[in-house]
């Protein structure tokens, strides 16, 4: 009798967990986007969320919670219930946070668990189409001849374009001047207006101006060329090895979310990004469908975070 009671108690205690995982999602899932609506992460997340809703029959609601380089939304999710009903989407910016902020309100390594990637976005370097720089090597030569004279724009201190520019200087052994703007769109405007010489950013954000004949993409990151811009060489082909900036758009869950839920979520996202319409949409954006396993993604976040260490030290980035 006593054994039975223990068994029953154990069952009752374990049941909600098991049921939770099996039944997930039993109610609407909230995905926090810590950026303003209309931005790159927002667009990618909404596209995937739409698909996830179709696949699971539960709404996946995207909620924008912008502010403080995404840390407000991230901190919120880090402190949410780990039940799989609150997730957060972010991009490479996540790997920059420890180098930009002295104190983050959550443990960057532990409190948020990487689940899977939605879309990979290679980085490109863009210059004005009718400007003097036709190739990456040519631009490097010009930069070496006039150290510090060439400028690169960014959407602000501590953003992907800023760190990527610093990494480019480190790897190519050149000296450029960083000119921060309020947002990458302003920086792109400055490039095509001839105010600054170049901008490094996700290929997606460079494509429009490149297609419109206003900007020229000198090189893209990644192992192979991009199908959307087949004429543009990779950084390695253009003569710069080891420039491994590959932006990712991924999902994170609060620490302690049941493994079964995470597995199901990863599988559903993988399925969603493999569907023809989402895949085609990503490719039209210059992106590559994601769907990495949790382990792969976690490794990538760690590697990327580490990659910025020498960059932050060299650029003497002062933490907030």
């Amino acid at each position: 009798m006593k054994n039975l009671r223990t068994a029953l108690a154990a069952f009752l205690l374990a049941a909600p967990l098991a049921a939770l995982a099996q039944a997930w999602p039993a109610k609407p899932v909230k995905i926090i986007v810590p950026w303003a609506p209309g931005g790159a992460v927002d667009v990618v997340t909404r596209k995937v969320a739409q698909k996830l809703a179709e696949q699971t029959g539960q709404p996946f609601v995207v909620e924008n919670k912008p502010g403080a380089t995404g840390t407000i939304g991230l901190a919120l999710v880090a402190k949410s219930a780990p039940d799989g009903y609150t997730l957060v989407a972010n991009d490479m910016a996540y790997s920059l946070l420890p180098h930009v902020f002295a104190n983050l309100p959550w443990d960057h390594e532990k409190d948020l668990v990487p689940v899977t990637t939605m879309m990979d976005a290679p980085y490109g370097i863009a210059v004005r189409a009718d400007g003097p720089h036709k190739t990456l090597a040519g631009m490097f030569a010009a930069a070496k001849a006039n150290p510090g004279k060439l400028t690169f724009g960014s959407g602000g201190n501590g953003t992907g374009p800023h760190f990527s520019g610093e990494l480019l200087m480190l790897r190519a052994g050149i000296e450029l001047t960083h000119v921060p703007y309020k947002g990458a769109a302003e920086a792109m405007t400055a490039v095509i207006g001839g105010q600054v010489d170049m901008l490094l950013a996700s290929t997606a954000s460079l494509l429009g101006q490149a297609r419109g004949g206003k900007a020229r993409i000198l090189a893209v990151s990644g192992d192979k060329r991009q199908p959307v811009v087949p004429d543009v060489p990779t950084f390695a082909e253009a003569g710069l090895k080891d420039f491994g900036v590959l932006n990712f758009n991924g999902l994170w869950a609060p620490k302690g979310t049941p493994p079964a839920v995470l597995e199901r979520l990863q599988a559903e996202v993988q399925k969603a990004v493999a569907s023809p319409d989402v895949k085609a949409f990503f490719e039209s954006q210059g992106g590559i469908a994601g769907g990495a396993t949790a382990a792969q993604f976690a490794q990538r976040v760690r590697d990327t975070t580490k990659m910025w260490e020498p960059v932050a030290a060299k650029a003497k980035i002062e933490k907030q």
């Binding site: 303003a36 609506p37 209309g38 931005g39 927002d42 667009v43 909404r46 596209k47 947002g183 769109a185 494509l207 429009g208 101006q209 490149a210 297609r211 419109g212 004949g213 206003k214 949409f281 039209s284 954006q285």
Partner: peptide, 21 residues
Amino acid sequence: AVMALMLGALTMQGIQPGPQV
């Protein structure tokens, strides 16, 4: 910011904002 939203709406429709539009 409002215009960024409009361009976001276009992007979601699969239209790449740019001079070519």
